[in-house]
Amino acid sequence: MSVGIVSYGAYIPRYRIRVEEIAKVWGANPNSIIDGLMVYEKSVPDLDEDTITIAVEAARHAINRAGIDPQEIGALYTGSESHPYAVKPSSTVVAEAIGATPNLTVADFEFACKAGTAAIQTCMGMVDSGMIKLGMAIGADVSQGAPGDALEYTAAAGGVAYVIGKKDLVANIESTYSFTTDTPDFWRREGMPYPEHGGRFTGEPGYFKHVSSAAQGLMKKMGTKPSDYDYAIFHQPNGKFPTRVAKMLGFSSEQIKPGLVVTRLGNTYSGSCMMGLAATLDIAKAGDRIFMTSFGSGAGSDSFSYTVTDRIEEIRNGAPSVEKLLADPIYINYATYARHKNKIKL
């Protein structure tokens, strides 16, 4: 099997709000929050941006990076927990806006922060079975944190798109492994604007159990160990969790460093570890091996093992790097942030 990544593209809105600015509004100590979360600032969508516009921009970058013919895309899945419509797919807009319609199958995925990696797995299966030539898997979110809630410091906006296929791969996906249980650590009920979460319950029984089980499961299945990998990315709801889980599993801080974008970006939910992977591919060389594990509350984790090919050099500069998207931000205050996030009802 030689299914893998044919191209990728990311998109991050230009606006940022610093943790200090949010902490000031709620009378919290910013330093303890920064220390606790290892997040300094987070991205904020423009007034006219949402999950769909972000997904389209990321998808277009993926198309442009490798000169993909959008008509060859046979399946497109957008993973998000902030689809603008409760009913009506985001993916139809994306497919139309990249010129992939009408001969393809699309659907929206939702699995908290791991809907995007579930979409990658779905595309892998369809490509490998010969059902489709190319599949596009997107993770994009304009995630919501209730005003004053701990999530407000990290809930960010961004998206990443991967084109999955068999030919002209920039990275082979050697294997994937998932670990899933019914663990209600975080949810948002239909019609509710903000999610509820189980506080510390999201940690041990949620994030750490699922990420480590999936990661260990994949390495066991493949017979690999942390030192076999040049880079590793773990879902990054904050800076602390992926750092801790990497250590628990035996990965070094050097291995996770290029992909740890959360400190300057916040948690882009469905885009989170996919953004880390994009940032890692931006600097990876042919032959590099990358380990990735996502996490979605509810709960589940998908682990992947990649090997980068020499094709990466040919397409690297065909679209903006994650570093470029993070550069030159516009910092806004809480009032402007509240307006951008539609927290002020008109």
Partner: peptide, 20 residues
């Protein structure tokens, strides 16, 4: 060109996307 929201009918209504 960039892909953006053009507007929406209302909170319940259709969202219009397009090119800015």
């Amino acid at each position: 060109a960039a892909f953006r929201k053009l507007g929406e009918e209302s909170e319940k209504g259709m969202i219009y996307y397009g090119t800015k």
